[in-house]
Simulated assay, not measured.
Amino acid sequence: MQEKIIIIEDEDSIRGFLRINFQRNDFHVLEAATGEEGLRIIRIEKPALVILDLMLPGMDGYQVCKILRQEFSDIGIIMLTARGQDMDKIMGLEFGADDYMVKPFNPMELILRAKALLRRIKKDEDEENQDIIKNGIFIIEVYSQRVYKNGIELFLTPKEFLLLKLFVENPGKAFSRDELLDLVWGYNFVGDGKIVDVNIRRLRAKIEDTSSSPEYIETVWGIGYRWRKD
């Protein structure tokens, strides 16, 4: 599948040259000659990467970059500049650019940098997706151990968090109390097995609208508990 990019560059010759080179490397290329036109196209087409010239008529590259970062936090931005001063590079990065190249440049180096940036963005997205578990109105952030219901954070103990994560990852599966003890408290746990029921009761009080009539954590009589499967 072709990656969609946009080249925002006011010089027709440079824009056309870049378009040809990116198309030869299997990119789907969009074009704009001004920052305003580029933003309009980006909002419609949602490209993965922006090749952004710094010196544009009207809205300059810094302004475009700032707006892009406010509206599209995960879009890749490579800034092009005819200047070689360090301050221009620093300002570009401060405004949210991921990378920059100074004109004149080798087009193949730009393409390689674009591919590397897209790989990094994809990797970050994959890692973020692995860190987040979504189930209906619940969002579980695994790394930070935070839980949200309808966007409101719930404050769970570590054991409550592990119970919820286990249930959400296995909807419809009935877990016995012994299984929950082994999986959450560990095989070597020594203590009263009723600790499972106590923690389930506390967890229900935090996640259910009415804990006495649980909607999410169901009791399976004679076995244990399960997460309701839609």
Rank of each mutant, 00 (worst) to 15 (best):
K194N: 06
Y62T: 07
E169L: 01
I78V: 04
E11G: 14
R69D: 06
R177H: 07
L112D: 03
E218W: 10
F167I: 09
W221R: 12
I217S: 00
A32E: 01
G186S: 05
D182H: 01
V184R: 03
L80S: 04
K134V: 14
L183V: 07
L203F: 11
I14T: 04
E125N: 13
M79I: 05
G84V: 04
L181C: 10
F72H: 06
E141Q: 14
E9I: 02
F27R: 03
L112G: 09
L18S: 01
V147Y: 15
K4S: 06
K229Y: 12
W221L: 09
Y62V: 13
G76T: 03
S176P: 08
I77R: 13
A116F: 13
F95S: 15
A32H: 03
E128H: 14
I44A: 13
L203Q: 08
D192P: 03
A174W: 08
K122S: 12
L39F: 11
L80H: 01
L117A: 14
L163K: 05
D98K: 06
I132K: 07
N129C: 01
I6F: 03
E153F: 11
L56E: 00
G186K: 04
I6H: 05
L49F: 09
F161C: 02
N199H: 05
F72V: 08
L117P: 15
L117F: 15
F167K: 09
I7C: 03
K89W: 14
R204H: 00
K123P: 12
Y187T: 04
G186P: 11
A97D: 03
E37L: 09
A114N: 10
M59Q: 07
R15S: 06
A174C: 02
K122A: 05
L112E: 09
G172F: 09
V198M: 04
E160F: 05
I6T: 05
A114I: 13
G193I: 07
L117H: 15
